[in-house]
């Protein structure tokens, strides 16, 4: 029972992180059909930059902010310098972002070397919260879960209740028509890319505090985002949430109960979903 609850909570924490990363990926793909396979690199780079900021200012909050803002700027640059020139050319986008992520991974390795870094979250997040059955659970992980829920609600409100959100959703449905009705689509793309990439950077700091940041995490979170959005459905934020929950839980329960075959289960979930609904659980055909 104890193992079950612990695994369940670990699954929730992981799902929270996956959701934050994957929702950014999904948002960018859903609106712009931009395939950003450098999304994992943005996660890791955001984490490193956040770490540098935390190191020099001593403030964890500033680190979170720096992670978000720096990657939001990186996202805008990506859109302006790369994606704007290859709209609709999915294969080229894929190849270019793969090339970028190779270069980024190598440069990050050169700067921050192979050691893993960990953040020190503020005192009130440190330590453990008493819980029934399992005595206590790290407060920070509960905070990650809360942060993911808050981000999810904020994204939902942003997309459904604000003017920009309405434009973004209109763009998902019919980009040409949106442009024809006088909306500056390029600006909208920049905003969306900034949010999507910023979320990856934010997750880098949050994830670096819950787990750690090290080379290889970029691939791990890219893979997680891919599976989550494939399972949940491209461009759907609720889909990303469901996908993240499913994959996070599967991974943790797999690891806890069948250590050597853990990863196979996430993969099986993906295969089963694809076999039944190729467009993902909440994706539109």
């Amino acid at each position: 029972m104890r193992l079950f609850i612990l695994t369940f909570l670990n699954g929730l924490t992981l799902a929270a992180l996956y959701f934050i990363v994957a929702s950014g990926f999904s948002l960018v793909f859903g609106l712009m059909r931009n395939v950003n396979l450098a999304h994992g690199s943005l996660y890791l780079l955001g984490g490193y930059i956040g770490f540098e900021v935390a190191n020099s200012t001593g403030s964890w909050y500033l680190a979170v902010l720096a992670g978000f803002l720096s990657m939001a700027i990186a996202g805008i640059l990506l859109q302006l310098l790369v994606f704007r020139y290859m709209e609709g050319q999915e294969l080229r986008q894929t190849l270019v972002t793969i090339a970028l992520s190779i270069i980024l991974a190598d440069v990050m390795l050169a700067i921050w070397s192979g050691v893993s870094y960990q953040f020190t979250p503020p005192a009130w997040l440190f330590g453990a919260t008493p819980m029934p059955f399992i005595n206590a659970y790290p407060t920070y992980r509960l905070f990650t879960l809360a942060a993911a829920i808050a981000i999810g609600i904020a994204l939902w409100l942003f997309l459904n209740r604000t003017r920009i959100g309405i434009m973004i959703r209109a763009g998902v449905d019919d980009r040409g028509m949106l442009s024809a009705s006088g909306v500056n689509v390029q600006l909208l793309f920049c905003v969306t890319f900034a949010i999507g990439a910023g979320l990856a950077g934010l997750a880098g700091v949050l994830g670096g505090s819950a787990l750690s940041i090290a080379p290889g995490e970029d691939t791990r979170f890219l893979l997680a985002s891919l599976i989550v959005v494939i399972v949940g459905g491209m461009g759907s934020i609720p889909g990303a949430a469901i996908g993240a929950l499913l994959i996070g839980m599967t991974e943790q329960f797999g690891l806890a109960y069948f250590p050597t075959y853990g990863v196979v289960f996430s993969f099986l979930v993906m295969v089963v979903v694809l076999a039944i609904r190729p467009q993902g659980l909440l994706g539109r055909a």
């Binding site: 190849l95 270019v96 793969i98 090339a99 970028l100 190779i102 270069i103 991974a105 190598d106 440069v107 050169a110």
Partner: peptide, 9 residues
């Protein structure tokens, strides 16, 4: 990797 990535790019 930086070199091969750049050539690829």
């Amino acid at each position: 990797n930086t070199v091969i990535g750049a050539v690829f790019l």
